[in-house]
Structures are given as C-alpha cells and as structure tokens.
C-alpha cells in the first residue's frame, strides 16, 4: 500500500487517491486550484521516494530533477516523502576565504559554509549582511563543491551591499547565506544537445557554473557562450574562457561590449547582445538555453530565443539581475 510522509507523519493513501486528496483529508494546509494538472497551484516537492511520471507532466526538466510534482496528479506506488513548506529556505553561516578583483568593477568572492550546502552550479543564494540587508548572487562554482562557494559581485554605486563587499568585507568575515534556490543548472542525460549560454555583466556567474558542469560531465554537443558587458570594467574571465575554448573544440566563446572601447581588438565584438546572438545563431530549434543578467535584457532574449525555435520549457533564466 502506498503512503506519504509529511512532517515526519505517515499518511496511507486509499487506493486511487491522489497526494492532494490525502493532504486535504488530513487537514493539512496546501494550495490547489484546477485539480487537473493545469494551474500548478499544488506544486510540492518530494524529498524521498519515486514520483510517477504523470505527476510531473508539463514541468521543467530541472524542476523534475529537484523532485517537484503536482499533488493533484500524483498517485504514488510506494512511500513518498513530501515537503509542503518547500519555500522555507535553509540558512547557513559562511566565512569569506578569498577575495579577488576579476575586472575593475567585478569582485570574485569565495565563501566556505560551516556545513555542506547541497547546491548545483547556476543556482543562487541570498547573502545577508549583519544589518539584515540581503542580495541574491548566483553560484559560479561547480556542483559538488559542497561547502565552497564562488560568487561574482558587480560594484553598484549607492548599492546596499556591493560597495561594502568591494571596500570593507575582508577574508575571515562571517556572513549569513540562505539557499540554494533557482533552476538555472546543467541537466545530465542530454550530452549531445546544443547549449546556448547568454549573460550580461556578472550574469556570467551562473553560466560559468553551468559551463563548468557541462565540460566536467563530458558534454559532446556544441556550447555557445555569449558574454556582453557595458565596458571592459565588467568583462571578466576573458583569458580563462578564451583558453577553455581553445582546449574544448565544442566551446564557442563570444565576448562583446555594448559600445566600442578604444582598447578593444577584433576578438571582442561591439553591439547589443541580442543582435549579436541573432547574427550568429538565427535558429535555436532543439537547443537548451540559459539566460542571466539585467532583467530587461533577459526578457528580450527570452522572447528572441523562443521565436528562434527554442521550446519554452528549454529556456532557463534567473529571476533577478
């Protein structure tokens, strides 16, 4: 007989009953709407057990891998552990172990959390200062790095956190972090699929993480990375990415600046990133796409990639700049 485990309590499922029926019957607080797998109101996460494929129909691959499913479509065959309060994000204390300027206005920060953080490259964490002010930063470090985290932080004049991180924060300082969150990660099991990574400024961070995972896992399909910046002050990891693209024949790297900078050579293109993208890759049918950076640019790119043929479920973007 199948059952679900919620808050360490076991609820047996009557034959034919869904997880949603059982949760509601037990008087647990769970949101729901259409009861037909359409509205996604009853999206919950399994922390252990097998989720039937039917309960994940229409979800993104990354959501599926993280165990998200629709309670109204789920009739488990065995025991399933369900997390209702999945919005509650774990908190950790982390120590700054390294700080290094990657470009004149971009700081690389390496943190070590006191306990292992089960994250995937490209997800993000909230970094919180003693004053309570928090900002989201994407993880550039590889999946499996456990308690070592790499963040790229652009200096925003007048910003609440970034000037402090650039000027005052020192190696040895303790910070509070919350996470990981987000679904902008490399997916296994499709090593031939072409990948497109497009980011502006420190939007490179999650893409660098996704790229590192893809290369480490032996991705065979082509990988095209577009990195756009306002000026050379924000164009970082240039030498590393150039070297990687020479080492890996399937990696194509397109650095670009919005406006010409006197010092720019022919290897850096000039122009809006969406235009460079459509020039190089007009057809994205069958591609998986990762977008990151300023929200207005990400929105433009999302639409552009979709119209160029990428499926709406194959476009991943972080919901912040």
């Amino acid at each position: 007989m199948s059952s679900i485990i919620v808050n360490e309590q076991c609820y047996p499922l009557p034959s034919g009953a869904t997880v949603l029926d059982t949760l509601l019957e037990a008087g647990l607080d769970v949101s729901f709407g259409c009861r037909a797998g359409v509205c996604h109101s009853c999206l919950v996460r399994a922390s252990a057990g097998d989720v039937p494929a039917e309960a994940q129909q229409g979800l993104k691959q990354s959501q599926k891998e993280q165990g998200w499913f629709l309670a109204c479509r789920c009739r488990p065959t065995g025991e399933l552990s369900v997390e209702l309060d999945a919005a509650a994000v774990p908190q950790y204390t982390a120590r700054v172990v390294e700080k290094q300027l990657l470009a004149p206005r971009v700081m690389g920060v390496w943190l070590e959390s006191e306990s292992a953080l089960d994250y995937r490259a490209g997800q993000y964490v909230t970094l919180r200062h003693d004053s309570g002010i928090g900002r989201n930063y994407s993880l550039a470090s590889r999946t499996g790095s456990k308690n070592r985290l790499e963040l790229h932080i652009a200096r925003t004049e007048g910003g609440a956190l970034s000037p402090w991180i650039h000027d005052t924060m020192a190696v040895g300082d303790q910070l509070s972090i919350e996470g990981p969150m987000g679904e902008c990660c490399y997916l296994g099991g499709e090593s031939e699929r072409p990948l497109l990574l497009v980011g502006t400024g420190t939007g490179l961070a999650p893409l660098y993480g996704v790229l590192s995972d893809a290369l480490q896992q032996g991705h065979h399909g082509s990988i095209h990375l577009f990195h756009g910046a306002r000026s050379l002050d924000y164009l970082y990891y240039y030498d590393e990415l150039r070297a990687l693209s020479e080492e890996y024949g399937n990696l194509h790297y397109y650095p670009s600046l919005v406006e010409s900078d006197g010092a720019v050579g022919p290897e850096i293109e000039v122009g809006p990133i969406d235009r460079l993208l459509s020039k190089h890759l007009p057809n994205l049918e069958g591609w998986r796409v990762y977008l990151s950076g300023a929200p207005d640019i990400v929105n433009t790119l999302r639409k552009q990639c979709f119209l160029a043929g990428a499926g709406s479920n194959a476009i991943h973007a972080d919901p912040f700049g």
């Binding site: 709407g33 259409c34 009861r35 037909a36 797998g37 359409v38 509205c39 229409g58």
Partner: peptide
C-alpha cells in the same frame, strides 16, 4: 496560454 488552450480543447479548467 496553457490554461486557455486546455479550456478551448475541452479539457479540465477552472
């Protein structure tokens, strides 16, 4: 759009 198409295809909808 998905909810709309489900409705006009005669599927379950709210």
């Amino acid at each position: 759009q998905k909810a709309f198409l489900t409705m006009v295809f005669g599927g379950p909808n709210s």
